[in-house]
Structures are given as structure tokens and as C-alpha cells.
């Protein structure tokens, strides 16, 4: 795992996993957590590729994916910016949370845990933490 910092973005890339997914997911995370502000300019494809030492085509397709998410917008001649809409980010964030929960529940279901089992485990975790 190699740590990189490009502007306000932080990445930890693992060259033994697909890079495209790592970039998309880590940028989504940064946006959802608010580490990169609304309306902020994201690094150019070249900058990010050079910063991460990866193929610009990979960065380009990751940026396209973020644009499909609605998280970024490209302004002709100016570059790519994070969306201004807090609403879009919030909506995206809750969708992802939903998806993460669904995935989790499905996995637990596979192991034979019911929703009740899960919530009691989570309850215990909460108590343990406090």
C-alpha cells in the first residue's frame, strides 16, 4: 500500500488490486466525508496520474464514473469540480450507506444470522465500546 496526497485528496493505492475501483471509491469517500469541499476543483487527470504514478486513462475513467454519480461536473476549459449541491452528496451518501448495509446483511444472511441476531450483536458492540 502506498500513500499519496494530491491537494486535499488522500489516496492509499494497492497495486495488487484494480486501481480504477480504488480511485473511485476513495474519492467518493473523500467527498462523502466532506474532506474535499463542495465546488472545489479536483486535480487534472495529468496531475492525479503523475501524483499516483498511474496511467492517465485509469484516472480518466474514474473521473467519468464520478461524473455519472453526479458527484463532479466538468466545466469546459476550466476542469472538473466537485458538485455544488450538498443535496446530491447527501443523497449519494445515503444510497451508498444503504448499499453497504444491504451487502452486509446479505453476507450475514449467508452465514445464517437473522436481522434480530445482527441487531443484538450490534447492541453488544455499542455497549462494549462505551
Amino acid at each position: 500500500m502506498k500513500e499519496h496526497e494530491i491537494g486535499t485528496l488522500r489516496f492509499g493505492l494497492d497495486l495488487s488490486l484494480p486501481l480504477y475501483e480504488q480511485i473511485v471509491n476513495q474519492m467518493r469517500g473523500s467527498i462523502a466525508r466532506g474532506e474535499i469541499a463542495l465546488g472545489e476543483k479536483v486535480p487534472s487527470v495529468r496531475e492525479l496520474a503523475q501524483g499516483l504514478k498511474i496511467n492517465p486513462n485509469t484516472v480518466m475513467s474514474a473521473y467519468k464514473e464520478l461524473e455519472r454519480d453526479g458527484l463532479t461536473e466538468t466545466r469546459r476549459g476550466q476542469g472538473t469540480f466537485i458538485t455544488h449541491s450538498q443535496e446530491t452528496v447527501d443523497q449519494f451518501r445515503s444510497e451508498w450507506a444503504e448499499k453497504a448495509i444491504d451487502d452486509f446483511i446479505e453476507k450475514m444472511d449467508n452465514l445464517g444470522y437473522s436481522l434480530e441476531d445482527i441487531s443484538s450483536i450490534i447492541q453488544r458492540k455499542k455497549e462494549g465500546r462505551v
Partner: peptide, 13 residues
């Protein structure tokens, strides 16, 4: 090596 990598990435872009 890093300079060479950067030049290559620039070139590919």
C-alpha cells in the same frame, strides 16, 4: 526514475 515516470505519464496524457 520518478522524473522518467512523470514524463511518461505526461506523454501518455
Amino acid at each position: 526514475r520518478e522524473r522518467i515516470m512523470d514524463a511518461l505519464i505526461d506523454y501518455v496524457t
